[in-house]
């Protein structure tokens, strides 16, 4: 069942982009998705797929994301519009609890689009995520915020 997840999502994206959710178009989308996935089959690894998907938790993660995105754009805008910018930038290391490629990629993306943080790199052993923060005066608090916010929600939604 989980093998069908990626083609289904891609087929839905196809239907949205071509602007028609009619059956023939969905089937065509599925065919194109299968073809595209066939081309990248060698690069997709087992870790690229979530272990399980819980729609309710996924929605709650999505809601949190939209809220944080709006907040983050607002904070950057306010910071930049001030005549004197107060900046204490820095890069802190965030020890990862999530392990699979899919979860790390999702967490890194979410971190980048949230207030004042931007993921820069993942260590070779996939244990540490390096995060650049506009206000790095309290790295311990920032670490706790990510671990208790997005990371927990991701683990709830995909495990």
């Amino acid at each position: 069942m989980r093998r069908l997840l990626a083609p289904a999502v891609l087929a839905l994206a196809w239907a949205a982009v071509t602007g028609s959710f009619a059956w023939p178009n969905l089937v065509l989308g599925l065919a194109v998705a299968a073809l595209a996935l066939f081309f990248v089959r060698g690069h997709a690894r087992a870790g690229a797929r979530p272990a399980a998907v819980r729609p309710g938790r996924l929605l709650s993660l999505l809601a949190l994301f939209v809220k944080e995105l709006a907040l983050s754009a607002w904070r950057v805008a306010v910071l930049v519009a001030r005549p004197r910018m107060v900046l204490r930038p820095g890069i802190f290391a965030f020890p990862l609890t999530v392990t699979s490629d899919f979860e790390i990629a999702l967490l890194a993306n979410l971190i980048t689009l949230t207030p004042g943080t931007l993921s820069v790199d993942v260590s070779e052993d996939r244990r540490v995520l390096y995060v650049h923060a506009l206000d790095c005066s309290d790295p311990a608090g920032a670490r706790r915020g990510i671990a208790e916010g997005f990371e927990r929600k991701i683990m709830e939604a995909f495990r």
Binding site: P89, G90, I91, A93, T112, V120, D121, Y130, C136, P139
Partner: peptide
């Protein structure tokens, strides 16, 4: 953003002097 930041940091472009912490370096 992640790609550019990673490439810049690995290439050795230093962050501003205001930077308080760089655990990656």
């Amino acid at each position: 953003a992640h790609l550019v930041a990673r490439a810049a940091h690995r290439a050795g472009y230093r962050p501003t002097r205001l930077t308080v912490l760089d655990e990656m370096a």
